[in-house]
Design a protein around this nucleic acid. Structure first.
Lengths: 228, 228
DNA sequence: AAATTTGATATGTAGTACATAATGACTACT
DNA sequence: AGTAGTCATTATGTACTACATATCAAATTT
């Protein structure tokens, strides 16, 4: 196809709307002025006049920034710069059904990378209490295969929680639907040679490398799938 | 503080605007109808009438979804469901200056986790050509400390690229500013005992575990900082 | 001095009007 | 017949006006 070559040679004409442009300009404005959270921002009418567009357009752009938490507004008091929830925006878009397959696969791999990299952080922050709780979770697991994904979620979720990193934990929760979705695409359920209880034992014994090897063995079926 | 307890007992009164609500409702609508990318959506006026709000409000909500790439609009042709760029939304919010310190720290840790978990994926996809290129990058590095961050970016960026995972690579690029920012908070530049060239050698020799240990040593100064 | 009222103000919502681009049908011409 | 050209149609894009609503601050009352 010559189409791909064409696309490289001819740049797509920009069909940006005013709202798109205003959004960009507002972003630049916030950055250039290096506002900090809580700082007062100009009012809508002023922005509209300064930009030479209707208040309507400004509001559409502001609405976007507001959704991301970048700004907060109160009647009469006006707008202030907010503290955006970083993962919030991400979360809104993460729907397995509208993500293309390549990206789904990529996210699946990302999840595996996280899982394998967890050990070092875990060994910095784990406590005996954590391990006990983790063991309780592993022991409570039902062998019934239909509960398998639930077991996985509970166990691995606890692992992330043990890092004490709230962002990481939430990130993991967000990736769960993707993970579950990709797993359901499998024909037959595959199990690694190392069980959750094995992992708990490894954690307790205290050898970081051993734990990592165990985790790899636990996830091996997933890695095997990547090789094709 | 009794405030935290109070917050649990008393739910925050919802001060959602119409645009907020419409955004939620539209999301639900898209999900319930299980539209696929490219599917035609109702027009603005119909949505406004169905929801009992002005077209203005609907447009504000649509503007948000449009920003995320969830919908695409063309004049006369109407709206169709789009393929959102997952990381796009994330990218828009990722500014070190407006993220609070705890989250910055969390993201920094997340980055370390990724780095440590990279090995397994890397050993699935690495090629000799990749390693040669990586070595070229490492050899080109200048010893001047002022170029240190540039060196880091080039080298580690290439590592992510070698995984063949575009999402992961882009995710890493997005995290760079955060990483650089946190590193600049350090008093004195710290160097791990394993250099980039050492890592290349380890990669070439082919032992996954050795490479991971090397990476850990390379990043050790960063991990040391976490322990306090 | 404390409490209440009142006015001013910035955002939130509604509604109207028109511009603009894409579509498709219809017409005319060779 | 088939191509080119015209024109009405339609859904989004932009502008403007008007008013509701919450909130702050000053003025007034007690």
């Amino acid at each position: 196809m010559a189409l791909n070559e064409l696309k490289k040679d001819i740049e797509k004409i920009s069909t940006k709307t005013m709202a798109d442009i205003v959004e960009i300009r507002l972003r630049e404005f916030l950055k250039k002025k290096s506002f900090k959270p809580g700082d007062q921002l100009p009012k809508e009418i002023e922005l509209a006049e300064a930009l030479g567009v209707s208040r309507n357009v400004v509001r559409e752009a502001l609405s976007r920034l507001r959704m991301l938490g970048m700004i907060e507004t109160k009647k009469k008091r006006g707008m202030v710069l907010g503290r955006p929830d970083i993962l919030g925006a991400f979360e809104k878009v993460l729907d397995p059904l509208i993500i293309d397959n390549d990206t789904l696969q990529n996210i699946f791999e990302l999840r595996l990378v996280l899982e394998m990299g967890l050990a070092d952080l875990l060994y910095v922050s784990k406590t005996k209490k954590d391990i006990d709780e983790l063991e309780a979770i592993a022991k409570k697991e039902v062998t019934d295969d239909s509960f398998r994904i639930k077991n996985e979620i509970a166990f691995h979720g606890k692992l992330y929680e043990m890092t004490g990193n709230a962002t990481l934990k939430r990130f993991q929760i967000m990736l769960l639907p993707i993970f579950a979705y990709v797993v359901t695409l499998e024909k037959k359920p595959t199990r690694g040679k190392v069980s959750h209880l094995d992992l708990v034992a490894l954690l307790r014994k205290g050898d970081k490398e051993a734990f990592r090897k165990g985790m790899l063995a636990h996830l091996q079926p997933h890695f095997d799938r990547l090789k094709k």
